[in-house]
Amino acid sequence: MESFTTRRHIRMSDADIYGNVHNLSMIRYAEDTAVELARKLQHEHGIESYWGIADIQAGFTMPLPWTTSEVELSLHAEKVGRASLTLLTRITSEHGTHATVKTRVIRFDSTGNRAAITPEERAQYSRYLADSSQPAGRVLARSRA
């Protein structure tokens, strides 16, 4: 199993009134990580896909102080379907794991119609499939986008 990992600097504007990164900001971090993976695959392999979010579920395990300089985002594909991907992103810092965000995205063609994942895309996204013998993490709260 391969993971796509990136880092994100925390901005003061990401914080809530209690000085912690707002939960919605952490969901945005996960969404941005999925976009970065799609751009990487486009750049490296010429895979150009159009994705729309169908569902987001997020579990928050501990507050993330905005004074933390950066977080690590680790993305795995939980499932590669016929026309959808289920992505699992863990948000961690030196304090531990702060959130796990599960996102299901649907593939569209350039005209906006739902489209099947091509064999080339399937091969690339399958590299990131999580080992099914490992627990995926507990999703604690559900949010619709």
Results as ranks from 00 to 15, higher is better:
L64V: 12
Q42V: 04
D55H: 14
A58N: 08
A38P: 02
L37K: 09
Q57K: 13
I47P: 00
W51T: 11
E48N: 13
T61Y: 14
I53A: 03
W66Q: 11
A54P: 03
Q57D: 09
G59C: 05
E48L: 08
L41Y: 07
E44Y: 02
E48F: 03
K40G: 00
Q57T: 08
I47C: 01
M62E: 15
Q57M: 02
I53H: 02
I56Y: 01
I56A: 01
I47K: 01
K40P: 00
H43T: 14
I47T: 05
R39A: 06
L64F: 09
T67W: 00
S49E: 08
A38R: 14
K40S: 10
A58P: 08
I56K: 02
W51H: 11
L37E: 06
W51V: 09
E48T: 13
E36A: 15
W51I: 09
H43I: 06
E44T: 13
K40L: 11
A54E: 13
R39G: 02
E48Y: 05
E36L: 15
R39K: 14
H45M: 02
E36C: 11
Y50I: 07
T61A: 03
E44P: 06
P65Y: 04
D55F: 02
G46P: 05
G46L: 03
L41T: 05
W51M: 08
W51K: 06
E36T: 15
W51E: 04
G46H: 04
I56N: 02
A58M: 08
E44Q: 14
H45W: 03
T67P: 00
P65C: 06
T61V: 09
M62Q: 15
H45Y: 08
W66A: 07
S49I: 07
T61R: 11
A38K: 12
Q42M: 13
E48V: 09
I56W: 01
T67R: 01
H45G: 01
L64T: 12
W66I: 10
T61K: 07
S49M: 07
I53V: 15
A58T: 10
A38N: 14
I53R: 05
I47M: 03
P65A: 05
E44I: 03
H43C: 06
Y50E: 02
A58Y: 08
W66F: 12
P63Y: 07
S49N: 07
W51D: 04
T61P: 00
K40M: 11
D55Y: 04
W66P: 00
A58I: 08
I47A: 01
A38F: 07
Y50L: 02
R39P: 00
W66L: 00
G59N: 08
Y50S: 03
T61I: 04
A58K: 10
E36S: 15
Q42C: 11
Q42K: 14
G59H: 07
F60Y: 15
F60C: 09
G52T: 15
Q57G: 05
Q42F: 10
Q42E: 15
A58F: 05
L41W: 06
H43V: 09
Y50V: 12
E48M: 07
G52W: 07
T61S: 13
P65S: 06
P65V: 06
D55T: 14
Y50Q: 06
R39H: 14
